[in-house]
């Protein structure tokens, strides 16, 4: 039997908007995944450390402060430095379309889910894109 998919839900930056992160964390857990939630105010270094320690398949960054163009590249860079670029980085929050395109083109995020995305869509995407076993 394939092992459960492991997801780190992370909340970088100084703001406290954690409603979305917590709803997603719970939804993924209810969909049968192992979920670790970092809590608030995490630096990219702390996030990557947690990702490595917890041996996750996916890192989901929840960003509503507008800092996505600095946070995603930094997390990807640190994962690469630690030889963990196989970890899939996805995100959620209020990210403008131009920035989503830039994040994907540069390989800083595989997918970004914006307000209105259903739990089902996110679960399906993760199941289709993570290979376990």
């Amino acid at each position: 039997m394939a092992r459960k998919i492991r997801v780190l839900v992370a909340k970088p930056g100084l703001d406290g908007h954690d409603r979305g992160a917590r709803v997603i964390a719970r939804g993924l857990r209810d969909a049968g995944m192992e979920v670790i939630y970092t809590g608030l105010h995490q630096t990219p270094e702390q996030i990557v450390e947690a990702a490595l320690q917890e041996d996750v398949d996916v890192v989901g960054l929840s960003i509503l402060s507008g800092a996505h163009m600095t946070m995603f590249p930094r997390v990807c860079e640190l994962l690469k430095e630690n030889g963990a670029e196989d970890i899939i980085v996805i995100g959620g929050g209020t990210v403008p379309e131009d920035d989503i395109a830039a994040l994907k083109e540069n390989g800083w995020a595989r997918e970004i889910f914006t307000p209105g995305a259903t739990m089902e869509t996110i679960v399906r995407w993760i199941n289709e894109n993570v290979k376990t076993g």
Partner: peptide, 15 residues
Amino acid sequence: YDSDHPRAYGEVGRV
């Protein structure tokens, strides 16, 4: 945090 603190990076004057 003062504006030159490392944790303030990228967030000064934004919101």
